[in-house]
Design a protein around this nucleic acid. Structure first.
Lengths: 334, 334
DNA sequence: CTGAAAGCGCTTACAG
DNA sequence: CTGAAAGCGCTTACAG
C-alpha cells in the first residue's frame, strides 16, 4: 500500500500541495531548485500518483480506446502493435474494445459509456455508415478511423484502388488478358470497403484496353476456404482466366490450394496476386500488394496524439502507400 | 457534454445523491419502486457516470491489464481474444501493456505505475524469474500468469510436457525410431519455457525404449527460417531422422519448406509434427499439438474475475489439455 | 430504507 | 514563483 499522496510529499518537502503538483508535472513556473527537491522527496517516499484523481480533476482519462469488430484478425493485431509503439512514452493507456462482431452473444458496453473511460478513439475497420461509427462520431471526441473514410474526422487509409490497379497492371504486364477476380462478398455496393479495390481492378484492366467480365468475378468471402472454392469455380469455366487477382492474401492462399489440387502451379500455369502482405505470403511464394500495417497504426496514433494537443485540429486524411511484392506466383516466365 | 451528475439526478428525482448512487448500482437496500424511479430519471437525463470519480472513491479502477512481451505474436492475440470475451459484460476494461520486448527503444512505464491504472494483471508468457515478473508479483494485486508457472499467484497453462510426449509417441507409433527434434533456443536450462516440451520429447522416446540423441536435436529459434535451416541440418546428417518433432508450428512450416526444397514430402518421406495449432497448420497439412488459446485466455480472465471478488483467494493452477491433430505430415502410410 | 456530510487525491483559478 | 482553498463526481460510514 503506497498510500503516499502529494500531501505527504508537501509536508516532507515543506511546500504546498500545489507546488508539489506542479513540480511533479515539470511545470516551468517552478523554481528549478525547489522542483528538484520536491522530486527527490517524492522519489524517496516512493510516490506513485493516482491517475484516477488526476482524471477526476482534469477530465482527462489519459487513455485512448481502440474499437474494432475483429480484434483477433491477423492484420488488426499488427496495427495495434503500431499504435502501441507510437503511444508508448506518451503516458496514454491503450484500452481495447471489440465491437460489432455479430457472432458473439455477449453484450457490449454502449459507446457512450466507453467515452467516459478514454479521451479519444481509434476505430479500425469499422464499416462506414454503421451505427457504431455514427455513435462514435456523435461523441465529439477525437476519433481517428483506420481503413474507413470520413470527412468529419481524421482517417488513415491505404490507397486500395491504386493497390488493386497495380496488381492488375502487373498481371497485364505479364501478358495476361483474361484476368479473374476473387472478391469478398459484395462488389457492386459503393459503400463496402472492397468496392475501392474493385475500382482499381477495373482501372487496371481499362488501362490495357480490357473490360471486366462478370463471369471472371467470383466471391471468396475473405476466407481461405472461400478463396479455394472461388478458384475452383474459375478453373471450371469453359475458358478459365490465365491470371487472378485475389482481394486478400487469405483468399489467395485458398486459390493456391485449389491450383495444387489440380496439379497446377501458380506462376507457371496461372499468375496469382493477393492483397495484404500477410506473413505467410512470403512462405507460400505468393505475390501480394503489401500494406504497411504497423505504420498505419502508428499514423493513427500520431494523429490522435496531435488532436489531443490542439483541440480544434482539422480532420486529416493520411493515405499510405502499398507495395507490390512479386514472388513465384506471378513471376514472369523467362 | 453530458455534464449530468448524480446530483442532477438526485435533484430531479427528489432524493439524496446517496440514494441515487445506490440505486444506480442496483443495491438491494433501495426500495424497488424508488430505484426504478431513480433509474428512469437517470435515463431521461442521459446520465453516463464518471468512472474516474468512482475509481477515486472506491480505489477500484475497473480495469485489468494485460502484460506481454510479444503482443503481435499470433498466439497472443488469440489469447487476448479469449480474455476479451470473458471480460465483456463485467464492466472491466482491458488495458494493453507490451513489455520487455528487447528490440524496442521506447521507454516503458514501470509496473508500479501500471498498478495504479488497473486492478489486476494477466501476464502472458512473461518469463519466470524475469525482473518484470518479480516486480509484478511484488505488487500485491491479483495476477494471473499464462504460460508461466508460479506458486505465488494463479496461473493457467497447458501441459507442455504431455503435449510433446504425445507428439513423440505418435511418431513412435508410426514406426519411427530416429526422431529428430527442432527446439527453439535453449533446451538444457530448466528455467526456459521450452524445457518442459523437451522433457516430453524425451519421455516419449523413453516410453518406447529409445534414448535422445544429441545430434538429432537442433535449434530453430522459433522462426520459420530457423526451422527451415534446422531441418536442412537434420537432413544433412549422415543418418538423418525419419521423423521430426518441431516445438512450434512456425518452425515446422520452415521444416516443410526445407523438405520441399529437396523434393521430399512430409508424411511420405519424413513424418513431421509441430506444436501450437497455428491457423495455417491445417492449410499446410501439418500435424500439430493444438493448444486451446482462446480457452486459455478465458480461463485466466475467469480466474482474475474470481480473485477480484474474493480477495483472499488461494492461488490456483489451471492446466488445460492439448490435442494431437493428425494431418498429412504424419499420416500413417497405409 | 434514506440522507447529510466527509473524503478519495489530485488540479487549478485566484491571490499574493 | 508559491500557497490556500475550492472543486472534480462519485462512495460510504454514520445516523436516523
Amino acid at each position: 500500500m503506497s498510500s503516499v499522496g502529494i500531501r505527504d510529499i508537501a509536508k516532507a518537502a515543506g511546500v504546498s500541495t500545489a507546488t508539489v503538483s506542479r513540480a511533479l508535472r515539470g511545470f516551468a513556473t517552478v523554481d528549478p531548485e525547489l522542483r528538484d527537491h520536491v522530486l527527490a522527496v517524492a522519489d524517496s517516499l516512493n510516490y506513485v500518483g493516482s491517475p484516477a484523481a488526476a482524471a477526476l480533476s482534469t477530465g482527462k482519462m489519459n487513455a485512448i480506446g481502440i474499437i474494432t469488430p475483429h480484434l483477433s484478425r491477423w492484420s488488426s493485431m499488427r496495427m495495434v502493435g503500431g499504435i502501441e509503439r507510437e503511444l508508448r512514452g506518451s503516458g496514454l493507456d491503450l484500452v481495447l474494445y471489440s465491437m460489432g462482431d455479430p457472432n458473439d452473444p455477449h453484450p457490449r458496453p454502449p459507446i457512450q459509456r466507453l467515452r467516459t473511460r478514454v479521451d479519444a478513439f481509434i476505430a479500425m475497420s469499422v464499416a462506414a455508415e454503421s451505427p457504431d461509427l455514427e455513435a462514435l462520431l456523435a461523441l465529439d471526441v477525437p476519433v481517428c478511423l483506420i481503413g474507413t473514410e470520413s470527412d468529419l474526422v481524421s482517417c488513415v487509409l491505404i490507397d486500395d484502388t491504386e493497390g488493386a490497379r497495380t496488381a492488375t497492371s502487373h498481371l497485364v504486364a505479364l501478358g495476361h488478358a483474361r484476368i479473374g477476380l476473387i472478391f469478398g462478398r459484395q462488389i457492386r455496393d459503393p459503400l463496402v470497403l472492397e468496392h475501392t479495390r474493385y475500382l482499381g481492378y477495373v482501372a487496371g484492366l481499362n488501362d490495357a484496353g480490357l473490360e471486366p467480365q462478370p463471369e471472371l468475378e467470383v466471391a471468396g468471402g475473405f476466407t481461405i476456404d472461400g478463396g479455394e472454392q472461388a478458384m475452383h469455380r474459375l478453373l471450371d469455366l469453359p475458358e478459365p482466366p490465365t491470371a487472378v487477382f485475389a482481394m486478400s492474401d487469405e483468399m489467395a492462399f485458398g486459390a493456391l490450394r485449389a491450383l495444387a489440387a489440380r496439379g497446377l502451379r501458380a506462376g507457371r500455369d496461372l499468375a496469382l496476386v493477393g492483397f495484404d502482405g500477410h506473413d505467410m505470403a512470403d512462405y507460400l511464394g505468393l505475390s501480394t500488394i503489401a500494406q504497411p500495417l504497423e505504420q498505419i497504426g502508428g499514423a493513427a496514433a500520431t494523429e490522435i496524439l496531435a488532436s489531443l494537443e490542439e483541440g480544434d485540429r482539422p480532420a486529416t486524411k493520411t493515405v499510405l502507400g502499398t507495395r507490390l511484392v512479386v514472388r513465384q506466383s506471378s513471376r514472369p516466365r523467362i
